Computed example of a mutant assay.
Amino acid sequence: MSSIGTTAPAARAPLIGRRVLVIEDEYFIADDITRELASLGAEVIGPLGEIEEAQRVLSACTVIDAALLDINIRSSMIFPLARELKARNVPFVFTTGYEKASLSPEFQDVPVFEKPLDLPAMSRSLVGMILQGGAA
Rank of each mutant, 00 (worst) to 15 (best):
D32Y: 05
L126T: 06
V112Q: 08
F113D: 00
L58I: 02
E36A: 13
V110G: 10
Q55S: 11
F92Q: 01
G46Y: 05
F92T: 02
V63D: 12
V63G: 11
S125D: 04
V127K: 06
L131V: 09
R83V: 09
Y98Q: 14
F94K: 05
V127D: 03
E52Q: 09
S123G: 15
R88H: 04
V112S: 10
L119I: 13
A66C: 10
A38K: 13
I33W: 00
P116Q: 08
P120H: 12
M122L: 15
P47T: 10
A42M: 09
N89Y: 01
A38L: 05
G41A: 09
T34D: 12
F107T: 11
D31Y: 08
A101C: 12
C61I: 00
P47Y: 06
F113N: 00
V93R: 07
K86I: 05
K100R: 15
P105R: 15
V110L: 01
I33T: 07
N89F: 00
L117T: 04
P105Q: 13
R74A: 10
V93H: 08
E50A: 11
G49A: 12
D32N: 10
K86A: 13
A82V: 02
P120K: 13
D32A: 14
L126M: 12
L126R: 08
F107K: 12
A87I: 00
L48H: 13
E84V: 06
P120D: 11
V57F: 04
R124V: 10
L117E: 04
R56F: 03
M77C: 09
R88Q: 02
E84D: 10
A42Y: 10
K86F: 00
V110E: 01
L40M: 13
R35C: 07
L85V: 03
L119S: 07
S75D: 14
N89I: 00
K86W: 00
L81R: 09
A67Q: 03
P91K: 00
A60T: 05
V127H: 04
V110N: 05
F107A: 13
P80R: 12
S123N: 07
E36Y: 07
D32V: 06
A82L: 03
Q108A: 14
L117C: 08
L58P: 03
E114I: 07
T96Y: 04
A121W: 03
E52S: 11
S104Y: 07
E99S: 15
I130F: 08
A38Q: 15
E36W: 06
E106L: 14
G97M: 06
N72I: 10
A66H: 02
C61Y: 08
F94M: 04
V90E: 02
A60G: 12
T96I: 04
L68K: 00
G128W: 01
I78P: 00
V93T: 11
E52A: 15
F79R: 09
L37M: 15
Q55D: 08
L126K: 08
R35N: 09
P111T: 03
L85Q: 06
L131P: 04
L103G: 11
R124N: 15
E106V: 12
V112W: 05
E84H: 03
V110Q: 01
L69A: 07
I73F: 00
R56D: 11
V63T: 12
R88A: 07
